[in-house]
């Protein structure tokens, strides 16, 4: 871990001002940042402690949605009565992630910005365009069990590891950001992440000094909410693939469908065409397979992760089947 200056921000102004320094990074829960700093993967020269900014409340918004402060911990969010009742997919996704200890520390804002678990990113001896732009991607041709089947580029095949963000994407969340100028704006989560392309080091649309202050959820969706995660052990492991689904069936036909996927792409993945293929249809295996065909049309394995294509298909069909079956 490189030496750094520690700055404690007592108001948002402090935070964004300090964040203007070259090499500054915000720290809140620290569960990912400190992990990476110990390995020399991230080397901020200033750490701006934002844990005293009082961004730790969950509030109902005027439109009956939810405003989740950026510092709300994963535990508090998963256990919040309104989330458990109205946004079950989010609660489920959070509870499927990490461990009780990590959820108590990890925050909403930090989770959105979680870095990939690509082992080549994690090892400074390996070339990695995400860690060291232009150095190459040692993961390609290496051990690729964890890697992406959708959205990767010739420069990076890493996946985004979050569970929470996948559920939020299916819920149509927005990210509230305070810029260095003190102005707040809301970015749809679907527009928040960037694909790696030539510059996998740039992962989001955030500008230097931007501070995530909250995540906004629209009013509770109607229909069935499911989060299903597949991993290498029963608990405490990152997703090989996950699906968040919010599906409403009306009069025997699929009236709305929001699907988001984790563990298979460089960002929480959503495919509007696959969703559109479901709308208005009578639920059936054929319909579900068609949606899977659309989702996976461009899927590309890297050797060790080829299985994710079949796994994602099976998972999607299974989740859609459960989401649309008649309740007894």
């Amino acid at each position: 871990m490189k030496p750094f200056d520690y700055v404690r921000a007592l108001g948002p102004g402090d935070a964004t001002a300090a964040a203007g320094r070259e090499g500054a990074a915000f720290i809140a829960g620290g569960t990912n940042l400190l992990d990476l700093m110990k390995l020399g993967v991230m080397t901020p020269s200033t750490l701006v402690d934002i844990t005293h900014l009082h961004l730790d409340r969950v509030e109902t918004t005027e439109d009956a949605g939810l405003r989740i402060g950026a510092l709300v911990t994963n535990s508090d969010l998963a256990n919040h009565a309104a989330v458990r009742r109205d946004y079950a997919v989010l609660s489920r996704a959070l509870l499927a992630g990490a461990s009780g200890q990590l959820r108590n520390k990890a925050t909403t804002g930090g989770n959105l910005l979680q870095r990939t678990r690509c082992p080549y990113f994690y090892d400074t001896a390996m070339a990695c365009n995400k860690r060291d732009p232009g150095s190459g991607c040692r993961a390609i041709g290496g051990v690729t069990r964890l890697h992406a089947i959708l959205g990767a580029s010739a420069h990076c095949i890493a996946t985004h590891p979050s569970d929470m963000a996948v559920a939020m994407l299916a819920l149509g969340a927005g990210v509230e950001v305070e810029g260095a100028d003190g102005k707040r704006r809301v970015v749809a989560l679907d527009d928040f992440y960037r694909l790696p392309g030539e510059w996998p080091d740039i992962e989001t649309v955030l500008e230097p000094g931007d501070l995530i202050t909250a995540v906004l959820l629209p009013p509770p969706p109607q229909g069935r909410q499911i989060y299903r995660k597949v991993r290498d052990r029963a608990s405490y492991a990152f997703a090989l693939a996950s699906v968040a689904a919010v599906i409403r069936v009306d009069s025997g036909r699929i009236a709305s469908a929001a699907l988001a996927f984790g563990g298979i792409a460089p960002r929480p993945w959503r495919d509007g065409d696959a969703e559109a293929a479901l709308i208005g249809e009578v639920p059936s295996r054929e319909v579900f397979e068609r949606a899977a065909d659309i989702l996976l049309a461009d899927a590309q394995g890297q050797g060790g992760n080829e299985f994710k294509i079949d796994l994602t298909r099976r998972l999607l069909v299974s989740v859609l089947t459960e989401a649309t079956e008649e309740r007894t």
Partner: peptide, 24 residues
Amino acid sequence: MHDPRDGHIVNRDLAEYHMPVNAD
């Protein structure tokens, strides 16, 4: 898991070397 090109152990931590957890 060894990298085929240099033999290095790729999953060299307890997050990726999956020993059983309590739930297993």
